[in-house]
Nucleic acid binder design. Structure first.
Lengths: 125, 125
DNA sequence: CGGAATCCTCTCCGATACTG
DNA sequence: CAGTATCGGAGAGGATTCCG
């Protein structure tokens, strides 16, 4: 690893960017964040709103987002257990900034993207 | 799958957003795009500029980006084979828009993100 | 130099079943 | 309703090797 130090300065600048892109590495994490965009949601509401996510994967995703400081967990001590999840300030800023920008890009270039992908898969077969 | 159609309208709206977040799902794809940000690069230059990427992974990444219409390949018929890769208009728009927004977010909240991640891993042990 | 092929490892995703 | 435990499959990433 010592010789790699010579290269390190070349990509260390992108290290923080990597930490950010990794937030999108897990398929469902952005979807969960998007589902929390409009306010706190209970576990069950998230499952229903997202649709097609398994129980375990939702748990994994929430744990990662909690560990990343993007989501907060609030457990209410009630007879029927009630727990809801909400974006932290950090998570909200991620949604309002980059994810919104990505959403705008999709509305502008989404068609173009899908066309390019389809045309190449058509050739690829 | 037929009963899922009832749920489909709930998340189909996020389908395009998913197609976009998937562009960041593969670890090295954003890095390669970032490396092409300032202009066309040869395969070897990319490997050196990125640092720490294996040959196969770079090939895979380039193939995905080519298939997605984000990158173009230009092969020059010369004695020493010369091939360079460049962003397409679509790829450039992705870099200029969402990726730049993500970069801005990182400069503003990167510290906060790393702190949150470290503090939780410290607890987690 | 560009790049395809092989093999290995790791972890993400999904389904199922069980506990508080 | 919230959350955990386990198992299996699929795919990404990494190292190495060989071809044009």
């Amino acid at each position: 690893m010592t010789e790699d130090d010579a290269h390190r300065h070349e990509w260390v600048a992108d290290c923080r960017l990597r930490a950010a892109t990794d937030l999108f590495a897990h398929t469902w994490d952005p979807v969960v964040l998007a589902a929390l965009r409009l306010g706190p949601r209970r576990r069950r509401e998230l499952r229903a709103a997202i649709g097609g996510i398994s129980d375990k994967v939702l748990t994994d995703s929430l744990h990662r987002l909690l560990a990343g400081g993007l989501v907060e967990r609030h457990a209410h001590a009630e007879a029927p257990p009630r727990v809801d999840y909400a974006l932290t300030g950090l998570g909200q800023s991620l949604v309002d900034g980059p994810m919104t920008a990505l959403g705008r890009w999709v509305t502008e270039h989404g068609e173009e993207l899908l066309e390019a992908q389809e045309s190449s898969t058509a050739e690829g077969l």
